[in-house]
Lab assay of single mutants.
Amino acid sequence: MAAGGDHGSPDSYRSPLASRYASPEMCFVFSDRYKFRTWRQLWLWLAEAEQTLGLPITDEQIQEMKSNLENIDFKMAAEEEKRLRHDVMAHVHTFGHCCPKAAGIIHLGATSCYVGDNTDLIILRNALDLLLPKLARVISRLADFAKERASLPTLGFTHFQPAQLTTVGKRCCLWIQDLCMDLQNLKRVRDDLRFRGVKGTTGTQASFLQLFEGDDHKVEQLDKMVTEKAGFKRAFIITGQTYTRKVDIEVLSVLASLGASVHKICTDIRLLANLKEMEEPFEKQQIGSSAMPYKRNPMRSERCCSLARHLMTLVMDPLQTASVQWFERTLDDSANRRICLAEAFLTADTILNTLQNISEGLVVYPKVIERRIRQELPFMATENIIMAMVKAGGSRQDCHEKIRVLSQQAASVVKQEGGDNDLIERIQVDAYFSPIHSQLDHLLDPSSFTGRASQQVQRFLEEEVYPLLKPYESVMKVKAELCL
């Protein structure tokens, strides 16, 4: 049975990233139509530049190519590739079939990587351009969430054990800070992308030097003109047959890092959902379990974690691919890159769409948070109580021993009897502590235990987050809708 299948058929496997999760716009960027249309555009740009620099290419040939950029006979191309065992030459023939007058000058002087690699770089750039505003929107939604809850005390956790208090907004800023680093890295790697350009079979530009009869300047002009037509500021000066596969490492490393950030955020949300302090959106008709109707599973956060793990592992592909590119190139890269580049971007696209949807509907339960604080705060307040007693004339050592005994009794009630923490009640009825009984409410005010959390939130948002989001103001209103 021949390899390949009808990918629109229910009898043929289709990647869930495309069929179930990723956005239509990201799927289109990695589609065959987008790819092969870009090949034709690159052939047109090459012909236009070659004509401008004096090669015998007519206006009629150029116009014929322009008129057929979208006229792609995919069936013919597939048949040609089956016959020739070469995808680029299959599309040269297919393009030439609908451009008979231009057929002889299509791909003039070029090698397969002229269309293959340059198209990949265009796709990487455009895919990054799709991700950047999506990530900015996630940051914006979380920034709104953090600002609104900047002063809401909550129990902090280290080692997932109760620690000092923080605020809900401050905790959210930990998430935002990681995503801001990801946004900066995505922008950097996007701006650092260079075009492969017009380089020939081993990167020496020998074929173009021959076409222009040894004119170095025209060869350099050709490279520059096509690079500018493709919208790049610069091209690699040095290439082998391909652009260095280190570029793929750079791009997928940034995406993998984004995956790590999203995994951490969504894990926190899942843990908070278990504590009943916070939940992701839950639709009115949504079913959490087929057997347990009360369940409210954090399905979206779980999906993000599941896909983020996949995204983090994909960076190993370009690392290994770059390491086995012998001399000017081997074909070890080809099949692998067809999979890992598309999957990385479709996965990143999915987790950003999902995280935006989550961040637009996060639900906080202040009463649950308050109750958990009441359970733990008495123990945390013991040092403040000791200091207040010393100020009232008591002995630190005597007070410490009193607190120690009462704390152990209260802990026994919590752990052995399943009761509430009654340390404060014990202190309130103990005559030894009568000098500070009137101060206990103040000493137990949760806001006095959150330090500068709310001020940190305000400063972080104003100095770091809002300036970073400013270039994306025009796209901030787009909502994230999930079908599944």
Rank of each mutant, 00 (worst) to 15 (best):
K284I: 00
A335P: 11
N297W: 07
S448Y: 00
A110M: 10
V198M: 13
G240T: 10
P471H: 10
D398L: 10
K276H: 01
K391G: 06
Q61G: 14
V251L: 12
V247N: 00
C99S: 10
E401H: 10
A260D: 02
E279D: 15
F28E: 07
S306C: 11
N297K: 10
A256P: 15
P56R: 05
A206N: 03
A453W: 09
H217L: 06
E81Y: 03
D129V: 06
T321M: 04
K218S: 13
G259W: 13
E481I: 03
F157V: 01
F345I: 07
F157Q: 00
K170T: 07
S290G: 09
L46P: 02
L142P: 04
T354Y: 04
G109I: 13
N353F: 11
V92T: 00
A260T: 00
R190A: 08
A18L: 11
L307C: 14
S12R: 09
R337V: 00
M292S: 05
K35V: 01
Q286A: 07
R33A: 12
G54W: 06
T313W: 07
C305A: 09
Q456H: 11
M225T: 00
S359F: 04
E213V: 02
L55C: 11
L42C: 00
R404C: 07
L44R: 04
L271P: 04
S31W: 00
E328C: 00
I385E: 08
T227S: 05
I358F: 15
K479V: 00
D268Q: 11
E81W: 04
Y294N: 05
I427M: 12
P153T: 06
V324G: 04
Q205V: 00
V405D: 07
E462I: 15
K134W: 06
H310K: 12
L183R: 04
E463V: 14
R33G: 05
H442S: 05
L128C: 06
L341V: 09
A102D: 01
L155E: 07
R85D: 02
A392P: 14
G54S: 02
G169A: 01
A230D: 03
V363Y: 13
K187N: 15
D32N: 07
F145R: 13
S290C: 10
W326A: 08
I237V: 09
A127G: 10
V405G: 04
S412V: 14
A206P: 14
N185L: 09
A322H: 11
Q416G: 14
W39M: 15
V364Q: 00
M65G: 01
N336C: 01
Q205T: 12
Q416D: 14
S9A: 12
D215K: 15
N384M: 07
R85P: 07
Q184S: 12
D87C: 01
V115I: 07
T347V: 11
A256M: 14
L482W: 11
K66Q: 05
I339N: 10
N68R: 08
S334I: 00
L377K: 10
D191M: 06
V198F: 03
F379D: 11
A77F: 05
P133Q: 08
E417C: 05
R194D: 08
Q375P: 06
M89C: 02
F449H: 07
E328N: 08
K276C: 00
S306L: 10
K479T: 14
L307I: 11
P281R: 11
I386V: 10
R125D: 04
V138M: 01
C172S: 11
G197D: 04
C99M: 00
L355G: 03
Y432Q: 00
T354Q: 14
L174G: 11
E302M: 15
Q428F: 10
Q61N: 15
G96C: 11
A291E: 11
V429S: 15
I238V: 14
H400W: 04
R371V: 01
A308S: 12
G104P: 10
H93Q: 12
I351Y: 02
R309K: 05
D192P: 01
Q408E: 07
Y34D: 09
E462G: 09
K82V: 12
V189E: 00
L311F: 09
Q458D: 15
L314F: 04
L461D: 06
H86S: 04
K187F: 01
G288T: 06
Y114M: 13
R452P: 14
Y294M: 12
T382W: 14
L53E: 03
T350P: 03
A335G: 06
H159K: 10
D192M: 10
H91D: 08
G203C: 05
D178N: 01
K147M: 06
S334K: 09
Q439V: 11
R149I: 01
I72F: 15
E383Y: 07
L444T: 00
I265S: 09
N118D: 03
T58C: 04
L42A: 03
H310W: 11
T450Q: 15
G419N: 01
E277N: 03
D445I: 00
Y21G: 10
N71C: 04
R296D: 15
A136T: 14
H97L: 04
A102Q: 05
L165W: 15
R404P: 03
F433A: 06
K82M: 10
A308F: 05
L341C: 05
D59P: 09
F433I: 15
L124D: 09
G231Y: 11
P378V: 10
L346V: 12
K66A: 03
V363A: 10
D268K: 00
A49Y: 00
T202Y: 00
R149F: 06
I72P: 01
Q210W: 00
T154G: 08
V405C: 12
T158G: 03
M225R: 09
F345K: 06
A273Y: 05
E343M: 03
G5I: 12
S323G: 06
S31T: 12
H159G: 01
D216L: 03
V251A: 15
L355V: 15
N185P: 03
K276E: 13
S23E: 08
N353Q: 12
V189W: 05
Q408D: 11
A150E: 06
R137T: 12
F460A: 00
V138R: 04
L272G: 05
T313P: 03
S261R: 14
E80Y: 03
H310N: 11
S323V: 02
S474P: 08
L186I: 10
S359C: 01
I386G: 11
S395L: 03
C399S: 09
G259K: 03
P435Y: 15
N297F: 07
L272N: 08
D59E: 04
L355C: 03
L55R: 08
T267W: 13
K170S: 02
